[in-house]
């Protein structure tokens, strides 16, 4: 599904990713763990196509698509979804209108029929119920005045509605209490299937108790320095990143 080869990327002339290799087969969930500054967020932004990041070397293929050659909206249409670490506020843009606009933009680009306001509300309300989101979160401006947990749940609502093939969860667990963490995990787990892959970026092992990954990778100084099964996350939690970083150096 996703194949990253020898990826080098920089921002403002500062090299962040240094030859990163990673393959996520369809249907698998991989976790990337690593200390602050190791390049976790940069990886998610490069994959989602944010401006300002310069890829100096390497390639990323998504299915048979050259992901790096695509605009952010084309990546979304192809099935890439980035759950933001710090969800963006949009004052003056109603959440329901935003969600329907996004959904229909993707459907239009795929040649699918647009969904009308009534169908949309039915769909959104069903998803919101599962996420324990009150109805009035549809009326409020996107993320404005939302608590940290509400913002993350709103990201999960977007993900559930857009049903991507590849979800990039950038520290989605940060700032969440245990109930919200569980709701986020449930959403990801509900999408699990042969056509869904995810890259879970996290600092802590906690989230991986709820979203059990197929593989865990350790990112350090812009490269994967160690890979293993879910037990690697527990190992890291116990011994910290220091030992692995030292071994890799």
């Amino acid at each position: 599904m996703l194949k990253i080869e020898n990826l080098h990327a920089s921002i403002d002339g500062k090299q962040i990713l240094n030859g990163l290799n990673l393959t996520i087969p369809a249907g698998e969930i991989h976790a990337i763990m690593g200390p602050n500054g190791s390049g976790k967020s940069t990886l998610s932004y490069v994959l989602a196509g944010r401006e300002g990041y310069e890829v100096t070397e390497g390639s990323v293929t998504f299915g048979d698509l050259d992901l790096l050659a695509m605009e952010p909206e084309e990546r979304a249409v192809a099935g890439v979804f980035l759950a933001f670490q710090a969800p963006v506020e949009l004052p003056g843009v109603g959440n329901a209108n935003f969600l329907r606009t996004a959904l229909n933009a993707v459907r239009r680009a795929k040649g699918e029929a647009e969904i009308d306001a009534i169908q949309f509300l039915k769909l959104a309300r069903a998803r919101m119920k599962v996420l324990n989101m009150p109805d009035d979160m549809l009326k409020r401006p996107v993320n404005v005045g939302f608590s940290g947990g509400e913002k993350k749940r709103n990201e999960m609502l977007q993900m559930a509605l857009l049903s991507p093939k590849l979800a990039l969860l950038d520290e989605t667990d940060s700032g969440l209490d245990i109930d919200a963490l569980k709701l986020v995990s449930d959403t990801v787990n509900s999408l699990r299937g042969p056509a869904f892959s995810a890259l879970v970026i996290t600092h802590y092992q906690r989230l991986l108790n709820h979203i059990v990954p197929d593989r865990v990778h350790v990112l350090s100084a812009g490269r994967i320095v160690k890979s293993g099964g879910p037990e690697l996350a527990q190992e890291l939690e116990a011994s910290g990143y220091g030992a692995i970083q030292a071994a890799a150096a």
Partner: peptide, 14 residues
């Protein structure tokens, strides 16, 4: 720029 990227990342053309 961040708001524009957010919207585009949800499939909305620039």
């Amino acid at each position: 720029a961040e708001q524009i990227f957010f919207l585009r990342s949800r499939g909305i053309p620039a």
